[in-house]
């Protein structure tokens, strides 16, 4: 299980990265390598050039600018977990990250790599979709912005241009005074890729009114999706109501099935996990 031969470059700037990408049609970006290396070793991926972006200036930064959190694509998952900016403003991401692989995977694995990898069970893509993240991509000289929910197209399939480089991930900061969130997933073994995962964020204004409810589901579908929950505005929210609303929202969605987990199973489990996530979120804002 050895990779096929390739060349290796280690550029220091985004321009240089894009240059290499433009000049070599069969090149790939190497971030943490935690998804790419197994693919290379099994020869499922055969680039002629690997562009290591670990040393690109600014790629490891986490910054809050106004109402936006900007995250460099090379921010390691283990670093993100410890970031106080993220703890303060993106608690959902912090809740989801411990589910990503094992500690040694997170030491190397990056946020950008996980997003571009687009594993249907990826926790980071799910959070990005749920929170309305925006991906900033450079393709040659063009800067492109793609909304997370438009980015994921299928299992390991994204809207990323073949010569594109993700250079920044922006998350909106909630404008409400209180946010509550919940993240639950289920896998065969604790740290496997999930059969189903659910991410919930609830925003509440200073008067205690719930302004937004976001539910994202992953693992059970071809790619992570936001589920529109409507019909909660008029009534007082409770878990029973939410469970009904979730079941209704999932009614016409096709779930993935395989020998590890059937489609019907994934669907039932998604409903159950979503309820748990909602329960956590509502508890966090003191609603229940």
């Amino acid at each position: 299980m050895k990779p096929a031969p390739f060349n290796y470059e280690r550029p220091k700037t985004l321009d240089a990265v894009c240059d290499f990408l433009a000049k070599n049609s069969n090149s790939l970006i190497l971030a943490g390598g935690q998804s790419l290396l197994p693919m290379l070793s099994m020869r499922l991926s055969r680039p002629s050039l690997l562009i290591d972006v670990a040393h690109v200036k600014g790629f490891e930064e986490i910054k809050k600018i106004g109402n936006t959190i900007n995250i460099g694509p090379m921010v390691r998952q283990s670093v993100a977990l410890e970031s106080s900016v993220l703890k303060n403003h993106l608690p959902l991401l912090i809740k989801a990250l411990p589910f990503v692989g094992h500690p040694p995977i997170r030491v190397r694995g990056t946020l950008g790599g996980s997003l571009v990898q687009a594993d249907p069970s990826g926790e980071i893509p799910l959070v990005a979709v749920t929170l309305g993240a925006v991906f900033h991509i450079r393709d040659g000289n063009d800067n492109i912005e793609i909304l997370a929910r438009d980015f994921f197209l299928g299992p390991m399939l994204t809207a990323m241009p073949s010569s594109g480089c993700l250079y920044k991930i922006s998350f909106p900061v909630s404008k409400y005074s209180k946010i509550g969130c919940g993240f639950h997933e289920i896998a065969s073994r604790k740290s496997d890729y999930a059969f189903a995962s659910t991410a919930v964020q609830i925003e509440q204004n200073e008067n205690g009114k719930i302004e937004t409810i976001s539910l994202g589901i992953g693992g059970a579908l071809d790619y992570p999706q936001v589920i529109n929950i409507s019909g909660y505005n008029e009534k007082k929210i409770n878990l029973k109501l939410l469970k009904e609303l979730i079941s209704e929202a999932l009614l016409n969605i096709d779930f993935v099935g395989d020998f590890h987990a059937s489609a019907s199973y994934r669907k039932r489990v998604t409903i159950k996990l979503a309820s748990r996530s909602f329960s956590d979120a509502l508890k966090e804002i003191g609603y229940i």
Binding site: I186, H260, A261
Partner: peptide
């Protein structure tokens, strides 16, 4: 004994 089998 797979989880989904029991659940189904």
């Amino acid at each position: 004994i797979r989880m989904h089998f029991v659940s189904d």
